[in-house]
Amino acid sequence: MRIELKREGGVAFFPGLNRPRGLDLASLPPETAEALQRAVREARFFEQPATVGTAARGADRIRYTITVEDDGGRRHSVQLLEPVEEPHLRALLELLKQAEKTQRASARAQHP
């Protein structure tokens, strides 16, 4: 399974963070990969609409796009506008951000 996270918006635009970041679950520690797979399942990700949350008033909100591709070749994207109220989608988003941060830390340790 591959998961991509794209982040848009917020109080500033960062080209580096705006690029979609791919996570190949096969290359993650098994417990992280398992937690992510479970989160995708519990969020019923493939049944979610293309956009969750409405762009009401306000400014500087972040918009996340999660794309999941499973090993059977199914691919689906969901755009989340914060605050993300649906608990399972929020849990998935939290796990992805955490995994991304861990990846960044290990990349930094390898190439200081």
């Binding site: 109080v11 500087d60 909100r61």
Partner: peptide
């Protein structure tokens, strides 16, 4: 949020 990297205005309040 946890480790939340942002501040925003939601139309009524600052977060």
């Amino acid at each position: 949020g946890e480790n939340y990297n942002n501040a925003f205005w939601d139309g009524e309040r600052m977060v």
